[in-house]
């Protein structure tokens, strides 16, 4: 599926970080002045993540909830500014663009959201939900809007005669299609899917995933697919990136990752996917809770839950290193 060799990355992220700081209130500041050790609470939601997505590729970002994958997606989609690091779209740094160029790039990167209920404005009709942005950005005119919308809606498997309806008159799967149609209406070429099927029934999940695959072929799209479920992304991704507490721990082509997972965290995740051929197996959840991002462990973030942790893991942060062609992993164990 992938043709990475011929293409340069559509999107490249360079050591992107996002910190959420809860500033001290007035009383806290006074306490600090008086020598108390109260400090501002800082959550390092995304901690120096680098990755690239080539044209036509589907890259999946997988991790437990709270690992920063959605924050990363929102920064890529331009909804949230990063604290540090760069996002490059076709080689241009997004932050350095202004005016017309910035708008153009912003439209080229679109996002599809998790909650098909909260992601559609309940007071707008379908034609306004999908048609507002193309009209505002002059991708179509008022006169041609109807045809334009018919086209987009048909592409997403929606009946164009529903244009005058409100979102609450649709089912979950149809609403997700509306969300997809809204994103496609501005002619993007990179789409961030933030848990786009997590809120849907399993049968509907398959339909929507198939729609994503079909749209990629029709429109030459590139996806960054964010999910907590390796089972869902297995069939549609070319490459999988595993995140844990704000850092990338492993990145590999899908088949390789499933066949030869390197990082202990990835191995643990893979063991937990329910499979038909393992229906009698006992599932053993990964021990322990995901640590508080307010106070992440020293060294390798995964060490408190890792069965193989050594002293080095408790002190030194492992770097992403190549373990096979195209396969990167951040684990000290690889160095024996």
């Amino acid at each position: 599926m992938s043709n990475q060799e011929q293409n340069s990355p559509v999107l490249e992220i360079r050591s992107l970080s996002k910190k959420f700081v809860k500033p001290l209130d007035f009383a806290g500041k006074i306490a600090q002045k008086l020598g108390s050790n109260i400090r501002e609470e800082v959550v390092h939601a995304v901690d120096g993540v680098s990755l690239h997505v080539n044209k036509g590729e589907v890259v999946s970002l997988v991790g437990e909830s709270g690992c920063g994958k959605s924050t990363l997606g929102r920064m890529v989609a331009g909804i949230m500014p990063p604290t540090s690091g760069e996002i490059l779209y076709k080689g241009q740094n997004i932050a350095s663009l202004t005016g017309e160029d910035a708008r153009e790039v912003a439209l080229k990167v679109q996002m599809i959201f998790q909650d098909p209920f909260a992601s559609l404005n309940p007071r707008l009709r379908v034609r306004d939900i999908i048609g507002e942005a193309p009209l505002v950005h002059k991708l179509t005119t008022a006169a041609e809007q109807d045809d334009y919308l018919d086209d987009v809606m048909l592409r997403c498997g929606l009946d164009p005669s529903y244009k005058r309806r409100y979102p609450h008159q649709f089912s979950g799967g149809q609403r997700q299609r509306l969300g997809i149609a809204r994103a496609l209406a501005v002619q993007p070429d990179f789409i961030v899917c933030d848990e786009a099927v997590a809120a849907l029934d399993v049968s509907i999940q398959a339909q929507i995933l198939n729609l994503f695959i079909k749209l990629r072929e029709d429109l030459d799209l590139t996806y960054l697919f964010i999910s907590h479920d390796l089972g869902v992304v297995e069939h549609i991704s070319d490459r999988i990136v595993i995140m844990y507490l704000g850092r990338v721990v492993e990145s590999a082509p899908t088949e390789e990752l499933f066949a030869k997972p390197n990082h202990p965290y990835t191995q643990a995740l893979l063991r937990e996917i329910p499979r038909l051929d393992a229906r009698h197996a006992d599932f053993t959840p990964i021990e322990g809770e995901i640590p508080s991002p307010l106070d992440p462990p020293q060294g390798c973030h995964f060490h408190p839950r890792c069965p193989f942790a050594t002293d080095r893991c408790r002190q030194e942060v492992p770097q992403l290193k190549s373990v096979a062609p195209g396969h990167m992993s951040a684990c000290h164990l690889n160095e024996g």
Partner: peptide
């Protein structure tokens, strides 16, 4: 904080329009 406002931001719709229309 609902996703439809984020979606509007993502669609590069102006602040004024988001505030008054959405």
């Amino acid at each position: 904080r609902k996703e439809y406002v984020e979606a509007a931001t993502c669609l590069a719709i102006s602040h004024r329009r988001i505030v008054f229309k959405h």
